Amino acid sequence: MDAGPLRVAMIIGSTREGRVGDAVGKWFTGRAEQREDLVTEVLDLVDFDLPTGLPEQPTRDMKRFVRLVDEAEAFVVVTPEYNRSFPASLKQAIDCAYDEWRAKPVGFVSYGYRSQGLYAVEQLRTIFTELHTVTMRDTVAFNLLDGTFARDGTPFDTDGQGQAAITLLDELAWWGLALREARATRPYVC
Rank of each mutant, 00 (worst) to 15 (best):
Trp174Val: 13
Ala184Val: 07
Thr135Val: 11
Phe108Arg: 01
Phe48Asp: 08
Leu118Lys: 07
Gly18Ser: 04
Thr185Ala: 15
Gln161Ala: 14
Val39Cys: 06
Phe142Asn: 01
Pro155Phe: 12
Thr29Tyr: 03
Tyr188Val: 15
Gln57Asp: 13
Val77Gln: 13
Ser110Asn: 04
Arg102Thr: 08
Pro105Tyr: 07
Gly25Trp: 00
Arg151Trp: 09
Val8Asp: 11
Gly117His: 06
Lys91Ala: 06
Gly13Ala: 08
Tyr111Ser: 01
Ala141Trp: 04
Gln123Phe: 04
Asp61Val: 10
Trp175Val: 07
Gln34Asn: 03
Leu131Glu: 03
Asp152Met: 00
Phe28Arg: 05
Arg67Pro: 09
Glu33Ser: 09
Gly160Tyr: 14
Glu81Trp: 01
Asp2Pro: 13
Gln34Pro: 05
Arg183Asp: 12
Ala164Glu: 03
Gly147Met: 05
Pro5Phe: 01
Thr29Phe: 00
Asp170Tyr: 10
Leu45Val: 09
Ala9Arg: 12
Ala88Pro: 09
Asp146Lys: 09
Pro105Cys: 07
Asp146Asn: 08
Val8Lys: 03
Lys91Phe: 02
Gly21Asn: 13
Gly176Glu: 10
Glu171Thr: 11
Ser89Glu: 05
Tyr98Met: 03
Thr158Lys: 07
Glu81Ala: 06
Ala103Asp: 02
Thr15Lys: 08
Asp95Trp: 08
Phe156Met: 01
Phe86Ser: 00
Pro80Asp: 05
Ala182His: 10
Arg67Ser: 15
Thr59Cys: 06
Arg64Val: 15
Ser110Gly: 02
Asp99Gly: 12
Arg102Ala: 11
Leu54Thr: 02
Leu131Met: 03
Cys96His: 02
Val69Lys: 11
Leu131Val: 06
Ile166Arg: 15
Leu172His: 05
Glu171Ser: 12
Val121Leu: 00
Asp138Val: 05
Val109Phe: 07
Ala173Thr: 14
Val39Arg: 06
Leu38Arg: 02
Tyr111Gln: 04
Asp157Arg: 09
Gly112His: 03
Met62Gly: 05
Leu43Cys: 04
Pro187Thr: 15
Ala3Thr: 15
Gly117Ala: 14
Leu177Pro: 01
Gly13Cys: 04
Val39Gly: 03
Thr129Phe: 13
Val42Met: 07
Gly18Pro: 01
Cys190Ile: 14
Asp49Tyr: 12
Arg35Gly: 07
Gln57Trp: 05
Glu81Pro: 04
Asp138Arg: 08
Asp70His: 11
Gly147Leu: 10
